[in-house]
Design a protein around this nucleic acid. Structure first.
Lengths: 326, 326
DNA sequence: ATCGCTGATGTTAACGTACACATATCGCTT
DNA sequence: AAGCGATATGTGTACGTTAACATCAGCGAT
């Protein structure tokens, strides 16, 4: 910047004014400075700027277990919202071969040029309850579990079950079985809770859930077991992949879907992937999930800050895998 | 840091030494300083560090069109490799509603705290040929097109076709049709090129490709058209989703796969998604793709730098959708 | 002509860190 | 005990930027 000032025959401060679009610079001077900037290929130095201003215009994103469905869409929402607000995103992926510690994640992120922090995790951190965010660093957790000190944002995994169960009840179903995801999955746990409580609220029988692992093959295995129980009229699989596994198993066993038995899934992940699949499912607005996390992270956490628990409502996608009980 | 120095009764420089693990600090002093650091909750300031050192220990990642298959795996590779080398990753997503300009992408990234830059794009930038990277900022492009000034890294989309075509030729096929992705997709273009040149090299007939759009439904439509041509013995779909669409259409038309007609896809994206799918396909090591990009970005570009074109070999995944011609 | 006001520009200092160099301390050799 | 080398610690400075203040020129009103 000093070189530019020299070349333009002005003071360094005037260059700063031009660069930052400040008023009180004559048009003639501005032209001259801009020409010097172009000639010398000057770029403002990030470190100098930040050191002076104390701000980085960058958002920290800490990822754990990104492979799960939907994380890419959430990341896109985060990148897009951050970009709109003039922020870059600095990302670190935590080693998911060891249990997540929020304290360690925060410690790691503290060394980076960030003004706020979003932590994304699809399992519950081992120190979730006792964690307290770094003072001065606004922290948002992407989590279905609520936290006493941090704002949490997530798609509503419980409401997802309410939507599907209401839909099935309206079609006369009362014997509804659940195919879960793996036990460590928070999403699966909340979907199961929603399923269970919907049945209990209506006094229906709650059978032991079939345990799956998100794969279509595990859904197929669950479907084979469920096909042997003639009472079952509907199956709620915790994701779409397991749901089509269930459908395949049921049809192989001679039970038609939806005429004999209804099946629903979650995620709306297959509509573009597969031909002739008409699965009733639930769609999450994951882009919105990311965007909301950014908005709250950048709101900051001044004195009198009260953490929020924001749950983004999913929508039911009605297709042809649900029919009335006869 | 000055406060810590005061609290520990040492100079600021000694604190710096302790923080950076420098030798020539007595054990007693180190203990005292560390205690003061803990008590005051001191964290080294990123801006100050960078201003002094001129380095950010951070890698820029510019994304365009991230939605395509495989980008998440590549990003994971980038994050993982960067983390291993002590680098954070600062990501910006370019608006994909307007054509990508590499010059603009670079200009945008220049304002961020980065030591090197990786630009990921699944279409060809409009200024690809005339682009020249920012001097002093080592730049790697994730691109199948070679660039005279930048190192490019990509999974080998041409070799992908060679693998599949050799496999089909070995099974006696000579009438092999291609179902392409959308015309703007670089991957599709190179896969088609590989298909075409393999046929030409063996003097086989090259039929006009069926145009798809990556979706299973477009594959189904292509499959219906191909089913009407009795000469066809094999179909090469440019991705797995279209391939299963083709399979569904062929079987609906009474042509068995693989007994009557063989089908291959690309990406190995369905093995965990669907039950009873046994599609011969090609798998890319996308994690390696990201890791390689990071390695070359961090190698830097000193004097005498020669850009490379690194193409990562895919592997053939033989399943049951290919049979011998009878 | 003088005063005061406004707008344009220059000067100084500080943000937090780490290199280069200066100085102090200690232990060992002769 | 003097001298020397090695180790420990302190001092000064510079990285690039911008806020705050100082200065200066120009112009209108009295």
């Amino acid at each position: 910047m000093a070189e530019v000032a020299l070349a333009a025959g002005v003071s360094q401060q005037t260059v700063s004014r031009v660069v930052n679009g400040r008023p009180n610079v004559s048009e003639k001077t501005r032209k001259r400075v801009l020409a010097a900037i172009r000639d010398l290929g000057f770029r403002p130095n990030f470190a100098g700027k930040s050191l002076r201003s104390g701000r980085y215009n960058s958002l920290g994103l800490c990822l754990y277990n990104v492979d799960q469905f939907g994380n890419l869409a959430t990341i896109k929402g985060i990148l897009s919202a951050a970009s709109d607000m003039g922020y870059a995103v600095t990302t670190v992926e935590m080693d998911d071969r060891v249990p997540l510690s929020l304290a360690e994640a925060t410690r790691r992120m503290m060394a980076l040029p960030i003004d706020a922090l979003i932590i994304s995790m699809s399992i519950k951190a081992r120190d979730f309850e006792e964690f307290s965010p770094q003072p001065g660093l606004s922290t948002v957790l992407l989590s279905m579990y609520e936290h006493p000190l941090c704002t949490t944002v997530d798609s509503d995994q419980y409401a997802c079950s309410t939507l599907l169960m209401d839909h099935l009840f309206e079609h006369g179903h009362r014997e509804i079985r659940f195919v879960s995801g793996p036990g460590y999955s928070v999403d699966s746990v909340f979907r199961e809770k929603g399923w269970r409580e919907a049945l209990e609220a209506r006094g229906c029988y709650v059978a032991e859930p079939q345990r799956g692992d998100w794969t279509a093959d595990s859904g197929y295995a669950a479907g084979e077991r469920l096909a042997r129980d003639p009472r079952v009229t509907a199956v709620y699989a915790a994701n779409d992949q397991m749901a089509i596994g269930v459908v395949a198993a049921l049809e192989n066993a001679g039970r038609r879907v939806p005429e004999d038995i209804s099946v629903v899934g979650v995620d709306d992940s297959l509509s573009r992937m597969m031909p002739n699949v008409h699965l009733t499912t639930v769609r999450f607005d994951l882009f919105e999930r990311g965007r909301t996390a950014v908005e709250h992270a950048l709101l900051g956490s001044g004195p009198g800050y009260r953490p929020l628990a924001i749950r983004i409502a999913p929508v039911l996608v009605k297709r042809e895998s649900v029919a009335h009980v006869h």
